[in-house]
């Protein structure tokens, strides 16, 4: 080597390696200490570790279940019921928030002054108030509704009462094609249709309305990012404003919209445990009960963490795949 003494410390590659080894050592030491500490404390309190408790009888009821469930079922089944409740409210929330958010985002850019202002007021009011507070409001509103016999009946087949929201449902049991079942009030209760509990309806309304405000801003930014020349070219070809939005602007806005939209979808999933505040039995609420009864906090929290991690990774994987599909082709 020409210029002076060759020191191994002078090698950036060697230094990089040393730092990486140090970081790994620190992380492993910290993890080991945490595990050791937990095990010691569990032993002191006489709590057995492991997931064996999942097979035991849960012994508590769950107010809403998509699959059959009784208190005699296992903790594993109880947690599955909670997970399904989380998935249902998140999935429907994602669909509704996307629809509402897109409409609001477009409305905010409307040439109509009143429509634009109203959308702005919605966005500013909703996204600046904590979601938890909004959930209490919706729950308060839904439970303060009149009883079944005086139910609000704004649209045919739609009933709003303190028992929740009754909507038409599809009956698949009649054969290949589903039959639309319109609910009706008979005596003191509703017959037919699907009843959404006040808890579910409040959580869904809260998540949808709150997240739609953020999605509206994302959609607005996406539309503004499409060059004005695109609209002009479409206008000069005689396309109508609605066609321009649908065929030219929104498809291009998507590539700007999709990445931040993914975060909003993840937010809906991760905000769904606020359900616990209004008594909707989601995964976190159910696992809380399980932890209280068994003392298996580490395992219970681990289950919830793993589930949410898997859910989030699956969702962002799906959105990344979609984003690649809508990306523009260029040289």
């Amino acid at each position: 080597m020409t210029g002076g003494r060759a020191s191994i410390w002078g090698s950036t590659r060697f230094r990089g390696l040393v730092y990486q080894v140090l970081v790994v050592a620190v992380v492993v030491a910290l993890g080991g200490w945490l595990v050791h500490n937990t095990l010691v404390n569990l032993e002191v309190r006489g709590i057995a570790t492991g997931f064996g408790f999942l097979e035991r009888e849960a012994g508590f009821g769950i107010s809403e279940n998509l699959i059959s469930y009784t208190p005699a079922d296992s903790y594993a089944r109880a947690l599955t019921v909670g997970l399904l409740n989380t998935l249902v409210v998140s999935a429907i929330g994602i669909v509704l928030a996307t629809l509402l958010g897109t409409v609001l985002g477009v409305a905010r850019l409307s040439g109509n002054w009143l429509v634009g202002r109203l959308a702005s007021v919605y966005v500013e009011a909703v996204r600046n108030v904590p979601l938890l507070l909004q959930l209490f409001v919706w729950y308060g509103v839904l439970t303060a509704l009149p009883g079944a016999r005086q139910a609000l009946h704004p649209l045919p087949g739609l009933y709003l009462s303190n028992r929740g929201l009754v909507i038409p449902s599809l009956d698949w049991s009649q054969g290949w094609l589903p039959v639309l079942e319109i609910p009706s009030l008979v005596g003191f209760n509703f017959v037919g249709g699907l009843t959404l509990s006040p808890e579910f309806a409040a959580l869904l309304a809260g998540l949808t309305i709150y997240t739609a405000a953020f999605i509206a801003e994302i959609v607005r930014a996406g539309i503004l990012a499409v060059p004005k020349g695109q609209t002009e070219a479409a206008l000069s070809l005689g396309l109508s404003p609605g066609q321009i939005l649908r065929l030219v602007v929104l498809p291009q806005a998507l590539r700007v919209i999709v990445p931040p939209l993914t975060s909003q979808y993840l937010n809906i999933c991760k905000n769904s445990p606020l359900a616990i505040a209004i008594g909707y039995p989601d995964l976190v609420a159910v696992s809380n009960t399980a932890i209280n009864q068994t003392g298996q906090a580490v395992e219970g929290v681990t289950v919830v963490m793993v589930v949410f991690l898997a859910l989030s990774l699956a969702l962002s994987g799906l959105m990344n795949w979609y984003n690649k599909r809508v990306a523009l082709v260029s040289r």
């Binding site: 479409a234 291009q252 809508v326 523009l328």
Partner: peptide
């Protein structure tokens, strides 16, 4: 009028998608 008039722009304005 727009159906009867074609326009070509400085920046092409082709629809990239």
């Amino acid at each position: 009028v727009r159906r009867r008039v074609g326009m070509v722009f400085q920046s092409f304005n082709l629809f990239p998608h």
